[in-house]
């Protein structure tokens, strides 16, 4: 039985009001995607591998100071600046709204990383290495990237494929675990969602600051944010003005027209800093 495929458009919502900067997503990503262990010298050379990173900003002056955190991952832009510059088409946009990096096509020109306004593309400057006892925990579903190629967040596409197998073959209803009758095993929005397909960072987030959904899924709790963000893009494209004072929805570096698929929600400050 080949299940009918539906064109998804995956997206993530990052609620900065909930993010505590705990770095659980960073660790989860590291473990899921076979990312080499970052050592001190990597950071000193600014060559650390982090598919998702938490940027920290300070607001105010001591002692009247607040920490702000922004998790930054590949934004899976609709108009991705990294895609047209690749000479070998190693990075492209697929039907599911993902910006995909194909490792075996990549020849390591690093144009994409230069052109990425979010600095989320990591270049393998070295052969990846793990301590011997950690080699056994590598994820068998994910390719180990060798020296000289580019890598980046894939929205955990290996989990998506595994979820498809779970629905198609095993017929497991996500969350409830009930069995789906064979004729009903479609890879639609109802099946391909939480409980079946979640990126590792989203799954590990203790405060649900990261939320993941199909943007076409009407039942998803974050549908309104996607809709609002898409509306904002539409308005801007037609030269309209977007009033951002009443909404928390924004996207990173929206003004350069990359149309990211990752939506950020502004922090609501209950106790704003007293301005001097």
């Amino acid at each position: 039985m080949v299940a009918q495929r539906i064109n998804h458009k995956w997206g993530m919502v990052v609620d900065l009001d909930r993010c505590t900067g705990c770095q659980a997503c960073v660790v989860a990503c590291q473990a899921e995607n076979n990312i080499p262990i970052n050592v001190k010298s990597f950071y000193q050379q600014r060559r650390a591998y982090q598919w998702i990173r938490i940027e920290r900003y300070w607001e105010g002056e001591f002692p009247n100071v607040k920490a702000r955190f922004i998790p930054i991952l590949c934004q899976h832009c609709e108009n991705a600046p990294c895609e047209p510059v690749c000479p070998v088409f190693a990075t492209y946009h697929n039907d599911e709204g993902m910006n995909v990096q194909i490792y075996n096509r990549c020849i390591g020109t690093r144009y994409c990383s230069v052109n990425c306004p979010y600095s989320v593309r990591m270049f393998n400057y070295w052969e990846p290495q793990w301590p011997d006892r950690l080699r056994n925990q590598l994820n068998p579903d994910v390719t180990i990237r060798t020296r000289g190629i580019m890598e980046k967040c894939s929205f955990c596409v290996q989990r998506l494929r595994r979820g498809e197998v779970n629905v198609e073959r095993r017929g497991i209803e996500p969350l409830t675990g009930e069995s789906i009758p064979p004729a009903d095993r479609k890879l639609d929005q109802r099946r391909m969602k939480e409980g079946n397909y979640l990126p590792a960072c989203v799954q590990s987030c203790p405060t649900n600051a990261l939320q993941f959904a199909d943007q076409h899924d009407d039942t998803s709790p974050v549908k309104e944010y996607f809709d609002e963000a898409n509306e904002q893009i539409e308005t801007r494209e037609h030269g309209g003005h977007v009033d951002e004072s009443h909404t928390r929805v924004y996207r990173l570096l929206e003004e350069i027209g990359t149309k990211p698929n990752v939506v950020y929600l502004k922090k609501v400050d209950a106790f704003p800093l007293e301005k001097a």
Partner: peptide, 11 residues
């Protein structure tokens, strides 16, 4: 008529 998206096999 099976999808040939790269991520079907390469991930």
């Amino acid at each position: 008529n099976i999808p040939t998206d790269c991520t079907i096999c390469h991930k």
